[in-house]
Design a protein around this nucleic acid. Structure first.
Length: 587
RNA sequence: GCACCCGUAGCUCAGCUGGAUAGAGUGUCGCCCUCCGAAGGCGAAGGUCGCAGGUUCGAAUCCUGCCGGGUGCGCCA
């Protein structure tokens, strides 16, 4: 199935081409003025500039050709040369039926035959996840769902932060605390205990302590750097300790991502590419791509065309340890070997943009990326209502787990206030509250454009009205409820049809799903899906308020309306799935 | 100093491959449950699109310069 706008653009494009003008002028969009028309084409204005002719004259000729097409109920020229288009209800109905029959609901197969690796999440080993990880996880997850739906072969990778100085800091902290001396005994040959000497709770305390100690004390920092280099060099006790950190952290991370409903195909990290890092570095050195500079090994990445300073990418520090730029490069090598992707998408904080520019340039210079396009899909910072990075009232970092629990508690409170779930079993109430809470968080995050910083407002998250996740769930739940009653009463569900303005508007929106999916993919922008879903729910609510469905006496009309309900539900659930939002049976 | 991101209604945000009257939500003020779930629907008020130039028939959107906020800039991630 072709997306509707693509179909209309092709038709208009052909009309322009028949007038000896570029087909590209035929681009059709949804009308900015729904009161005047359903769709519009502004190509005549642009064509006029190029052809040095009157826009009205061009529009007249193109419109004359379009009028011959029975698809259109109306072809009109307005203003300086806009071509306004309406489709016939018959044309809309046919396309609605096709959409309803299509298992993918018209998903544009833009990614057919193409592979993408999406790198997101990026939590650190030994640190609990906090609200700052929300964006990468939620945006990245939505993108992986979208790309997959659009036909891409997707591999998602959590890319754990598990190999840098932070590991050295933690190791020295364990040493200083004297918790497990055996791991520091150079004469001990192993084996090391299977039981971790530290718990996740321990790590949560030790990490900030280690970080603070290194900040305050230079000798302590030097020690941590040494430990990092030794870890990377393969010192057995340190490797064993690292494995414990990893295992302990993995349990906590599994819990966090499960509660968020986020799945990764790969749980690789910086350490995963340890074995190929040194050979890669040697190779880069041998080929003269990596060079010595101020005691470190670097890849110069500046270009003549640069307007800004572009520092080189540091591969190996003067103390012998590698950095995350090095592991990022090695990870590219690893991904090209195992996935050979067409695209690698990094869903990482925008503040790391320069870093990725360096890495991408280095990869290109060294020819490491194969056919892959490397792209950083950055996102803005999450701030508190004061415009500063978000903190709890106590001034600490809010954990993701606590945040989810808090929002779910609000949702449960709301449920109690409505008096609606009183008869539901407690487990179901809790499950509804969880789904509503997650929907609130995800939708609030995803509906902002990726790159803008956004204000993380707890108060906003305890409201479930207006343009929110629960509004969309509520619309879906009401449809489910109607369809359930219809089934109980043995009412037939027929093909959707158009009998009123509300139904026509709803139809037009339903047919826009493929366009929304395509646009969201192109711009790597889930907020386009959010807007689409919200508008869909709004149009449905208007239809719902205006027309009675179950009590409609005319059986054919009732069946058609039930069909429209079902199609709306299918489309709504589909979009919500792309956003990572679940719809409860009732709420 | 240089670079990147941002500045749109009281608040939170869309819109930015140039196009017709700049849109939502929230808040404020009205109206709508004897009928499918009111976490809903309908309506009103609310904007010099940071400022100043430029390109264009046409600029919130493109270019330049300012102002304001955020961020980054060789051995952290």
């Amino acid at each position: 199935m072709t997306a509707l706008l693509n179909e209309l653009s092709a038709i208009a494009g052909a009309a322009f081409a028949a007038e000896g003008l570029s087909q590209s002028f035929g681009q059709v969009t949804r009308s900015d003025r729904p009161d005047l028309a359903q769709f519009q084409c502004n190509g005549a204005l642009a064509a006029a500039k190029q052809a040095k002719a009157s826009p009205r004259a061009i529009a007249d000729k193109v419109a004359a050709r379009l009028k011959a097409d029975p698809l259109f109920a109306k072809v009109e020229i307005a203003g300086p040369g806009f071509i306004n288009l309406d489709l016939t209800d018959a044309a809309l109905t046919v396309r609605g039926a096709a959409l309803a029959k299509d298992d993918t609901l018209g998903a544009p197969q833009t990614g057919k035959g193409k592979a993408v690796v999406i790198d997101f999440g990026g939590p650190n080993v030994a640190k609990t996840m906090h609200v700052g990880h929300l964006r990468s996880s939620v945006i990245g997850d939505s993108l992986q769902r979208l790309f997959r739906a659009n036909g891409w072969t997707v591999t998602s990778d959590i890319h754990l932060g598990d190999w840098g100085l932070q590991m050295g800091q933690l190791i020295t902290e364990v040493a200083h605390r004297g918790i497990a001396p055996i791991y520091f005994d150079a004469d001990y040959a192993g084996p090391y205990p299977a039981q971790s000497p530290v718990t996740m709770d321990d790590l949560e305390v030790m990490f900030p302590a280690a970080s603070a100690a290194c900040k305050a004390d230079e000798s302590r920092l030097a020690e941590a750097r040494r430990a990092t280099a030794e870890l990377q060099d393969g010192r057995p006790g340190y490797r064993a300790l690292w494995q414990h950190f990893f295992n302990v952290s993995k349990v906590g991370l599994d819990r966090e991502f499960a509660s968020l409903g986020v799945h990764f195909d790969l749980w690789k990290g910086e350490a995963s590419v340890d074995a190929i890092t040194i050979p890669m570095v040697e190779d880069l050195k041998a080929r003269g791509i990596a060079v010595e500079s101020e005691g470190a090994l670097v890849i110069p990445v500046e270009r003549n065309s640069d307007k800004k300073e572009m520092p080189p990418l540091i591969l190996v520090k003067s103390d012998g340890a590698v950095l995350y730029g090095t592991t990022d490069l090695a990870t590219i090598v690893d991904r090209v070997r195992s996935q050979d992707p067409d695209l690698i998408l990094y869903v990482v904080d925008q503040r790391q943009h320069l870093h990725f520019e360096q890495v991408f340039r280095a990869a290109e210079k060294a020819g490491l990326a194969g056919k892959a396009v490397l792209e950083h899909a950055g996102f803005g910072t999450m701030n508190g209502t004061d415009g500063k990075p978000f903190k709890t009232r106590a001034g600490g970092v809010m954990k993701l787990f606590d945040l989810i629990a808090m929002v779910a508690a609000e949702a449960e409170k709301r449920l109690a206030e409505q008096g609606i779930g009183a008869e539901y079993p407690p487990e179901e109430r809790a499950e509804i509250a969880r789904k509503v809470g997650i929907a609130t968080l995800k939708f609030a995050d995803l509906s902002n454009y990726r790159l803008t910083d956004y204000v993380f407002d707890l108060e906003r998250f305890s409201k479930f009205e207006g343009k929110t996740g629960p509004y969309l769930q509520y619309a879906a739940v009401r449809i489910q409820s109607i369809l359930r009653r219809a089934a109980e009463q043995g009412l037939a569900v027929g093909a959707p049809a158009i009998h009123s303005p509300e139904e026509r508007t709803l139809f037009l929106q339903l047919l826009g799903l493929p366009d929304a999916m395509q646009a969201a993919e192109e711009r790597r922008a889930p907020n386009i899906l959010c807007d689409y879903a919200f508008t869909l729910a709004q149009h449905y609510s208007r239809f719902y308020a205006e027309h009675h469905i179950l009590s409609e006496a005319d059986a054919d009309l009732r069946a058609a309306r039930l069909g429209l309900c079902r199609l709306t539900l299918d489309v709504l659930v589909k979009v919500l799935t792309l956003l990572g939002i679940e719809v409860p049976e009732r709420m």
